[in-house]
């Protein structure tokens, strides 16, 4: 049933649906020869589309192939079935049209912060002076212009990831791939960076595919959440269980964590990834560690 056109969330999804497709993943499969010569299938028949300036998150339990998926999108791993199209052209290897932010810190330690951001620009054969002024703009966008001349080892983990985002964006990619970029950060820094990322996304015309294992992060950031599942009887590899739209207005605020719509989506994904198990019937035995003190068991 079509909703009222005045509903801003529905209106937003309608607008996204009208945009051109940037990334088209068709029946993607990936298998490799694992230990002992056995063929391991990492991904099985994954299909989805990402439209321009959409924020897509991919969530799943460990072993569902989400990292493999993003590495294939980046061109760092090769799929064995199906195809990946970026603006209609097949992806064959890594390239500057797909920026990537990794979980580990991958700033070049031998370059200052601003030279790190300049790296992609210089690879695109931009002159050094122009690359520098452009890099400073990107650093300003992530709020680290004051650290331009610092070495990466002098930055905190959160600052490093912000520089990594600036570096990836400076090369003006069509799509920004993020592989658990905040996974190594503490919860406070992580929350700050999530807000920061959304703010950047508001200011920059870029499509984002964001991999995470954190359901809250996936729901709060995204327009749409892809839920990947590990292999089971019906699926030899990691497979796409569902694509869930997040019916929350943008810009997002922390307070939205309490909205019923947010909770409903979160609950649904949680149940997909971790089906509720019946509680253990009997009381489990408790190992006593000491004989001293009162009897608490």
């Amino acid at each position: 049933m079509p909703e009222a056109p005045s509903d801003p969330v529905a209106e937003r999804f309608r607008r996204i649906a009208a945009r051109p497709v940037v990334l088209d993943v068709r029946a993607l499969g990936m298998s490799f020869r694992g230990a002992g010569g056995k063929t391991v299938q990492a991904l099985h028949d994954v299909s989805f589309q990402v439209r321009r300036r959409e924020f897509l998150t991919v969530v799943g339990a460990s072993g569902c192939g989400k990292s493999t998926l993003v590495r294939i999108l980046a061109g760092l791993a090769h799929h064995t079935a199906g195809e990946v199209l970026l603006d209609g052209r097949p992806v064959t290897g890594p390239g500057p049209d797909r920026g990537m932010v990794f979980q580990g810190y991958t700033l070049f330690p031998w370059l200052t912060v601003v030279r790190n951001v300049m790296f992609g620009l210089e690879m695109g054969d931009m002159g050094r002076d122009q690359a520098r002024s452009e890099a400073l703009l990107w650093l300003d966008l992530v709020g680290l212009a004051s650290k331009a001349e610092a070495w990466p080892h002098q930055l905190s983990g959160g600052q490093r990831q912000r520089v990594a985002i600036a570096r990836a964006l400076a090369a003006r990619p069509r799509i920004l791939l993020m592989d658990e970029p905040f996974g190594a950060l503490d919860p406070q820094t992580r929350a700050t960076l999530q807000e920061h990322l959304l703010q950047i996304w508001q200011q920059v015309d870029v499509t984002v595919v964001f991999i995470t294992h954190d359901i809250d992060e996936a729901v709060w950031l995204a327009d749409r959440v892809l839920v990947l599942q590990p292999p089971d009887q019906d699926h030899p590899g990691g497979w796409l269980a569902e694509a869930v739209e997040v019916p929350l207005p943008v810009p997002r605020t922390r307070a939205m964590h309490d909205l019923p719509a947010y909770r409903a989506v979160r609950e649904r994904i949680e149940r997909l990834i971790r089906p509720p198990r019946p509680p253990a019937a009997e009381r489990l035995p408790v190992f006593k560690m000491t004989a001293a003190g009162d009897e608490v068991l």
Binding site: G93, Y105, F119, R167
Partner: peptide
């Protein structure tokens, strides 16, 4: 670190 090489590749390094 392989990550450094991969990061450079995604930034368009030949």
């Amino acid at each position: 670190d392989r990550g450094l090489v991969e990061a450079a590749q995604t930034l368009g390094a030949s």
